[in-house]
Design a protein around this nucleic acid. Structure first.
Ligand code: MN
Ligand code: MN
Ligand code: MN
Ligand code: MN
Lengths: 218, 218
DNA sequence: ACTAATTTTTAGATTAGTCTAAAAATTAGT
DNA sequence: ACTAATTTTTAGACTAATCTAAAAATTAGT
């Protein structure tokens, strides 16, 4: 039996360790889960005991294959529920995260596989993040951030790195969404801001925005 | 803030007190929640403190209006999710309860009201139980149990009292479901069993079955 | 009305998850 | 290499929810 709290730790460690491949330190987990380092130490000991991760005192933790599978399954559920909320229940992409944080812990294989089928097996969630299939396989698409894009080229927006309400609402208010076509006009060396053409309108976005917007070559 | 456990106690007390109208005693709650009487005593003290119910030592508990509203909202969510699972995700009526027990605790007004709308405002769940609207109003239909039905009359099956897997699968295997037409042929005084006509087939059901099947006059 | 059976409450302990404050280990700076 | 800063762990305490065992109150039977 795995608890909701354990699932949240495992998911956080997966994300912090870039798909569970790197070591993650105590303070990073504490910050991510808005808890204290001492609580994290207690919990990672328990998770190590249950074989979800390997823990070396003062060195940090890394997920085991068992832990990685748990993480991928929670992420699958989170992202499928996000698709459901947007496609079927009229949620906007900045409203789904909070509810999906709860729905992702519902345990029923039939539920999630039927939901997947009902949604016609979506490959990406409303933020452009890939949805693993029932075997945990991700369908990853090549992407670059707007910061890395080349002047003169035209791209399609396919995702965001930051899916905070603030950032998503900023994008909404500037008519940027998944599928939007963006041409890079100028990159300002001084502050790394980027001038882009959107539809017919031109605008300048900060480095912060540029780093958090993912594109693919058209 | 109300916890998941508190919600489950309040719901159980609502059902045991016949829509929260009657006093409920400690042992009944303990049995219903598969816990111990001592745990119930502790919890009802806490719920009384939070004004969800009135508690008199050794006398039992009764929900306050605030408690009744919490119960009705949980029941609304439980039954809407049951409809969703059957109508959209190919669950059978004997599979939905367990999953709905978890889904009913997800807290989001938008979620539940959009779900209601998506399902086109259903008035009854897959077991024939009424679904309160967003104001907590039940659309109750007059119903009698098969035990109370009259010989020679024809009825339509509109619900079940017991929604255990065993009972629902028994009904499935005898082709009895919501909407099934039933004519009462004979009532056996010895054991209160009932002989009925279903479609063209005749069969005898036990008193236990007859008491748990709800009908309306055609 | 009095005893016996039942129900309910209290007392004390346990587990999961968290916290603060202090100690220990690691890392960084000179 | 040694001290200072940072990170991490330990120790001890707290809350929510549960349990067992014992005590108290209520209800039932004669
Ligand atoms: Mn999300
Ligand atoms: Mn997402
Ligand atoms: Mn149910
Ligand atoms: Mn039901």
């Amino acid at each position: 039996m795995i608890t909701l709290t354990e699932e949240n730790y495992i998911k956080a460690i997966y994300h912090l360790g870039k798909h569970g491949k790197n070591m993650v330190n105590t303070n990073a987990i504490a910050e991510s889960l808005e808890t204290k380092a001492s609580s994290v130490t207690d919990m990672v000991k328990k998770l190590a005991e249950k074989d979800y991760l390997n823990y070396k005192k003062y060195q940090g933790v890394i997920l085991t294959e068992k832990g990685r599978q748990v993480a991928v399954n929670i992420i699958r559920k989170h992202r499928l529920w996000e698709v459901f909320l947007v496609e079927k229940l009229n949620f906007t992409w900045d409203e789904v995260h909070e509810v999906a944080e709860h729905l992702e812990h519902i345990k029923s294989d039939k539920l999630i596989n039927e939901l997947d089928s009902f949604l016609e097996f979506p490959t990406h969630d409303p933020h452009g993040d890939p949805i693993p299939d029932k075997n945990g396989i991700f369908n990853t698409i090549d992407k670059i951030s707007l910061s890395q894009a080349n002047i003169g080229n035209t791209y399609k927006c396919i995702g965001v790195e930051d899916s905070s309400t603030n950032f998503l609402q900023y994008l909404d208010s500037n008519n940027i969404g998944l599928g939007t076509t963006i041409t890079v006009l100028h990159k300002e060396p001084f502050d790394n801001s980027v001038k882009i053409k959107l539809h017919t309108k031109e605008m300048v976005v900060s480095q912060n925005v540029a780093k958090n917007l993912y594109l693919k070559v058209l």
